[in-house]
């Protein structure tokens, strides 16, 4: 993976927000950018590329990428359902929603559907406890989930992918 021109401009903008010689501060934002550009996950090659852009060592990137739960170090579906399982969501039926998603997609947590489109993982509180149960999909939250809503989300994204 290499950034295109727009992405490189964005890296430049991000780096300019910190004092000179503190470009490492841009690491997390740049990793977000890289993850999207690389199809929703980070492989070693991508991380090394980010290291070279920010002029830091590869290990400094691995250390960070492995610490934060939003960075996927293994391939995930094009659409990753990150379903909240923490207390407030749990008492509003998160377990049932997770079971439904598992059945609906026909894959276990962490596996990708055979068309490469979907996977799911359980995550901890995302700041939507009053609108439980909920999941995160890309940059957005899907809240007040019901089985019907899950069906609709899956259908909508199948269509989006042209299937």
């Amino acid at each position: 993976m290499k950034f295109n021109e727009t992405e490189l401009k964005e890296v430049e903008r991000l780096v300019s927000r910190y004092p000179a010689d503190r470009q490492k501060s841009a690491l997390i934002p740049v990793l977000h950018l890289a993850q999207v550009a690389n199809g929703n996950w980070l492989d070693a090659e991508t991380m090394d590329y980010v290291a070279s852009l920010l002029k830091i060592t590869n290990i400094e990137v691995y250390e960070v990428a492995s610490f934060y739960s939003m960075f996927n170090l293994k391939p995930v579906g094009k659409y990753l359902f990150e379903v909240c399982q923490t207390g407030p969501c749990n008492i509003q039926g998160a377990k049932d929603i997770i079971a439904y998603i598992e059945k609906k997609l026909g894959v276990k947590e962490g596996e990708v559907t055979s068309d490469g489109l979907f996977s799911f993982k359980r995550v901890e509180c995302l700041g939507a406890c009053g609108y439980a149960p909920m999941l995160q999909l890309g940059e957005h939250f899907k809240e007040h989930l019901t089985p019907e809503k899950i069906d609709a989300i899956v259908d909508e994204h199948r269509m989006k992918a042209g299937l």
Binding site: R22, S25, A26, I28, E60, E63, F67, M70, F71
Partner: peptide
């Protein structure tokens, strides 16, 4: 605006500063 990447501990103020410097929280 600086985005984190999923780590409750980065709400603790010194972990937050580490994270803002591009390190583990």
């Amino acid at each position: 605006v600086q985005r984190g990447a999923g780590a409750y501990i980065c709400g603790e103020e010194t972990a937050l500063l580490e994270s803002l410097e591009g390190k583990r929280g």
